[in-house]
Amino acid sequence: MRVFFVNQFALRPTDRGSLRHFFLARFLVENGYQAEVVTSDIHYNSRERLQWVSSSESHSGVMFRVIRGIGYKGQLSRLCNHLQCAIKAFFYLLRSVSSNDVVVGSSPQPFLAYSAYLAARVKRARFFYEVRDLWPQTLIDLGGLTRSHPLVRCMFFIERVLASKSEKIIVLMPLAEKYFAAIHGISSSKVVWIGQGVDCSAQVGRSVGRKPVGSYAEIVYAGSIGSANCISSLLEIAGELQGLAVPVHFSIYGEGPERAGLELKAAQLRLKNLDFMGALSRNSVLGKIAEADFAIALAHSSPLYQFGISFNKLFDYFLAARPVIFIGDVAKNPVAEARAGVVVSETSSKAVALAIKDFVAQSPEYLQDLGENGLRFLKANHDHKVTGQKLLDIISSR
């Protein structure tokens, strides 16, 4: 039996970013399965074209197959790229999948997941729907579109088909079963939560301790720089802290379409306590997180987050055992569940700045305990062997 993971933005272990599908596929290979990841050659975050020596590569027994697509910058060319990849993947899967195989269609964009379902149906293979993002609802809650918009209606149709026709729905948001029950009438027994998997055996350089008294506290953000990541709010918070003369410094690691505009805004605000550091390899950025005093994540105020979150950056923060500052109000917050930091649900930048001022003044022993709590939570719930076993259980259940 072969298991095909179809995700446009799945990455090889040599790439920079989340390795969810590599870890899942490798676990299956270690347990006697064959596994293949069907992906594209455009990085989801930087939008740069990734280099491939051929159309297929093997990494630790996992076969990666690349679907080459057009580059994109704007929304129209992005949509064209998504549709092109979906069509190419459909014909590749028709040639490759047999009735004994399993197809996991993932939805960082819904069209590719739909083409994976169609190919699986034609070949009479088993199909599992992995929900990375609640795309129609995301466009409504964060994108400002209405339910009557043609794109939203199209995505709701695709989501309804995939949810109803799949053998199981794999979700990353811990409360997503409520969404599928309310919107599509899907029984909670069909929905399986398999969170982000992390290699907890990775060696991460630990911080040697707090900086000398009188020095600043280093706060790291490591992740995408886009409209969904609230970096504009972070700049305003940094401005408030600068005005209060709180000795903190923010280092922002990552790339994204909003970076240039945010750097201009930081210059206009005359921020001396914040720098954009660019993107680094995962091992390098983990080292930077571990060397910092704190790590920070932010979330919009949105009804979308009533179903929980799956922020990759949080798992990197936990792995580096850093106390986390989380700004936002989300259900089943991992930082709160792990007791790994402080959750600030205030909306004004001044109130958030005051909360950060109080938090960074906590004792080193207390902050170290928070970091260790996050690491323990990660090992218990998100080690890649834990998530891999969950997937293996549902695949082998028939």
Rank of each mutant, 00 (worst) to 15 (best):
V103M: 07
F90G: 09
C200N: 14
A120N: 00
V213S: 15
R398F: 12
A182M: 12
V103I: 06
S164Y: 04
R68E: 11
L391E: 07
R95I: 11
L76S: 14
G328L: 03
S164P: 09
S189E: 13
R47C: 00
R47L: 09
R147Q: 11
S310I: 03
L244V: 01
E167R: 14
A35G: 04
L391V: 05
P257T: 08
S233M: 00
M277N: 09
L262C: 02
P110I: 12
S349P: 10
D329W: 00
S55N: 15
D275G: 09
F156Q: 08
I394N: 08
A119P: 10
L172H: 00
P323I: 02
F315Y: 15
V330A: 01
L142V: 07
S189I: 04
G71Y: 11
D41G: 03
G143Y: 01
I356E: 05
A290W: 05
F111V: 00
L79N: 09
G209S: 03
L274K: 03
G278D: 13
I186D: 10
R47W: 00
A25K: 04
V38M: 08
E130H: 10
S56G: 05
G209A: 00
I183K: 12
C85E: 15
L76K: 15
G308Q: 00
F276G: 03
A380N: 13
R259K: 15
Y117N: 07
V66L: 04
Q242L: 08
V335L: 04
L314S: 05
H184M: 06
D41V: 09
Q389C: 08
I356Y: 12
A25L: 01
V131M: 09
H384L: 03
E255S: 14
E218G: 05
E346Q: 15
L378R: 07
V335C: 13
A238K: 00
V152D: 00
A299V: 05
A10Y: 01
E159L: 07
L83Y: 12
P334N: 02
A89H: 01
T387W: 03
E30T: 02
Y44L: 13
A260S: 12
E57F: 06
L264K: 15
L354V: 14
G74W: 04
L298V: 01
D316S: 14
L19Y: 03
F127L: 05
C200V: 15
A338W: 00
F9W: 03
P334F: 07
A182S: 14
E177T: 08
G239P: 11
S99F: 12
V191S: 11
Q51I: 14
E57R: 04
R78C: 06
H82K: 02
P303K: 01
W52D: 04
V131H: 11
F9T: 09
V344T: 11
V6H: 00
P247L: 05
N7Q: 04
C80D: 13
L392D: 00
V220F: 13
S397N: 06
R132F: 07
L391Y: 08
P212V: 01
R210G: 03
N229K: 02
I219R: 06
A181H: 10
L24R: 02
S345P: 03
F64E: 08
N31D: 05
H59L: 02
V335R: 12
L151Q: 10
L175S: 13
V161N: 03
I327C: 07
P150A: 02
W135D: 12
E291T: 02
V192G: 08
R282E: 11
R68N: 06
P108G: 02
R282W: 07
A10S: 10
D101N: 11
